[in-house]
């Protein structure tokens, strides 16, 4: 997959054959520079590759569109709209019936119905991300793209948000593509961890995660979890070293 940039074409992602099944939770994991966010932006239609194709539900992606809900790392709520208006925005734009009612339903799903009339800036980082998730889900997108959504949160909030996300996902079973550089986060959340490689970027290895669902934080201490962690750690270490040495 190639991209035109100001300094000429760049091969950001090589060998990138990946199929994601409906309802699957896939984590893209890798060191920075491996193109995991690039891949997500291509699926979202934010970036347009000059070669290669990507399709959602068999339809080629042409520009940003409501087939893919997006949750960004942070600061993507519209600060000039109340929390409720943010969540109602999608349903309203798509001409759905009762956008406000839908927004209220999704806000209570993420436990923020009391903050409905607040401005986003008055909420904590964790609350803002919950609103971001509610907003992305409120249009019932077939695919939910999450770009390091908990990356800016502290460790405690982060682990609670992971559990919350799984709880919400278990109700919707929408397809999730989740970008992260946190190994434990990827294993804990996903059905399949896709380890990305660098120079050029692409897929190094896919690791199916066979931990039972519903997942529970205590599983992080289990033997199986440890085995995944060890395996994935080694894969990523190779890639990170490659970047590290190429800098000399």
């Amino acid at each position: 997959m190639r991209f035109e940039t100001k300094s000429g074409p760049v091969v950001a992602l090589d060998d990138l054959d990946i199929e994601i099944c409906p309802g699957e939770f896939v984590a893209l994991l890798g060191p920075s520079g491996c193109g995991k966010s690039t891949l997500l932006n291509v699926v979202a239609g934010i970036l347009k590759p000059t070669s290669g194709t990507i399709a959602v539900d068999g339809k080629p992606v042409k520009g940003t569109n409501p087939d893919c809900g997006i949750v960004f790392q942070n600061h993507s709520l519209f600060p000039w709209m109340s929390v409720l208006e943010n969540v109602a925005f999608g349903p309203k734009m798509l001409g759905r019936a009762d956008p406000i009612g839908t927004a209220r339903t999704f806000l209570s799903l993420v436990g923020l119905e009391k903050q409905a009339s607040a401005w986003p800036a008055s909420l904590s980082g964790g609350m803002q991300q919950r609103v971001g998730i509610a907003r992305a889900l409120a249009t019932y997108p077939p695919v939910l793209l999450m770009d390091e959504p908990f990356g800016a949160l502290d460790a405690q909030t982060r682990s609670i948000m992971q559990e919350e996300l799984l709880k919400i996902w278990s109700q919707f079973r929408t397809t999730v593509i989740f970008v992260t550089h946190d190994i434990e986060e990827a294993i804990f959340l996903a059905d399949r961890v896709v380890v990305m490689k660098t120079l050029p970027g692409g897929i190094k290895q896919q690791v199916p995660i066979e931990l039972p669902r519903p997942r529970d934080p205590s599983m992080i201490k289990s033997e199986l979890f440890n085995r995944y962690r060890g395996e994935i750690f080694e894969l990523i270490r190779e890639e990170t070293l490659k970047v590290f040495r190429s800098a000399d």
Binding site: T64, N65, S76, F89, M93
Partner: peptide, 25 residues
């Protein structure tokens, strides 16, 4: 902000809504 434009598009905003509800505010 680019994130706001991408978010609005992915939520189904057309050019007019993008102007009035994202660019203007």
């Amino acid at each position: 902000r680019a994130e706001h434009v991408h978010a609005a598009r992915s939520l189904g905003a057309g050019p007019r809504a993008l102007f009035a509800r994202i660019y203007l505010p």
